[in-house]
Nucleic acid binder design. Structure first.
Length: 271
DNA sequence: ACACTGACCTGCGAGC
DNA sequence: TGCTCGCAGGTCAGTG
């Protein structure tokens, strides 16, 4: 399940593999992956080179000569970089044929991922109504407090809201709440200034560490060529129902918060 | 204006 | 053992 660290890892890998490669043809095998008109998508991209590689939240941004190719992996999207003679997997939905006889293949078991073309002058700061990147200097405790004061619902819901901070998904939201020592159900309105300071520190530390680890892979993927997290990040609570809290030994609980499966330590995390 | 719900998908694990 | 059923997840459109 790619979140910000996984997307960053994929991007860095692809940057080193396909930079300056030219797209000579595109095979779209599941048309809903591509937003908008498929022929237009092909026409726009054929002949373009992969010039630069950026990320915004969980979106991959391939900067081409005359446009931006935006790709969101959702839950299980992956890219394979393989020889054109490699048998095509049944979950491969888009194939970019490159000038060096290799292919960039988009593989997505659940067909949830999406890609689209955006103009080259798209404002990436306000793109998709995304909030600040975790390391943006504008992400201050004063900013967090002012947003959370106006918000109803639990803190976990805010962490998952991409217009608040970009890039946090369900796994890291649980880990951030644990590191903050805050119950994921705690109302946004009751989040203190101190909580906000902890939130920023926890978010940056956890995501930074995850990037250094090459992302987290929770499910075991079967692919050997897949560009996914190769290392396991030390996850404290997510997916650890009934296991003991690494800090205090209390069994981890699983509940539902903001419509998501949520794991937390009922002793360490306070309302 | 805000928040919640359902749709999009497939694989897997639980339960019978 | 073999089947069905429901859950998992991020985003967006639709609804309340």
């Amino acid at each position: 399940m790619p979140e910000l660290p996984e997307v960053e890892t994929v991007l860095r890998t692809l940057e080193h593999q396909i930079q300056k490669q030219k797209i000579i043809d595109i095979d779209i095998r599941w048309d809903r992956i591509v937003q908008g008109d498929n022929d237009e998508f092909k026409q726009t991209l054929i002949g373009q080179e992969f010039v630069d590689f950026k990320r915004r939240g969980k979106y991959l941004l391939f900067i081409m000569n005359d446009c931006i190719l935006v790709s969101h992996l959702r839950m299980e999207g992956k890219y394979f970089y393989v020889d054109k003679d490699t048998p095509v997997d049944k979950h491969t939905h888009v194939i970019f044929k490159l000038s060096n006889n290799l292919e960039l293949r988009y593989n997505d078991t659940r067909k949830f991922g999406r890609m689209e073309i955006l103009p080259k002058d798209t404002d990436l700061d306000t793109f998709k109504n995304l909030g600040y990147e975790p390391w943006d200097e504008r992400l201050t405790s004063a900013y967090c407090k002012s947003v959370l004061r106006k918000r109803t619902g639990p803190i976990k819901g805010a962490l998952l809201d991409q217009s608040f901070i970009a890039g946090i998904g369900n796994i890291y939201a649980d880990e951030i709440c644990f590191k903050m020592g805050v119950d994921p159900r705690k109302a946004c309105k009751k989040i203190t200034k101190k909580n906000c300071e902890d939130l920023i520190i926890a978010t940056r530390e956890i995501l930074q560490r995850a990037i250094e680890c090459g992302g987290t892979t929770i499910r075991s993927y079967t692919s050997s060529l897949g560009i996914t997290g190769l290392f396991q990040l030390e996850v404290y609570v997510h997916g650890k129902k009934d296991e003991v809290c690494p800090v205090c030994g209390t069994p981890i609980k699983k509940i539902r918060v903001a419509t998501r499966g949520t794991y937390f330590c009922p002793n360490c995390q306070k309302r």
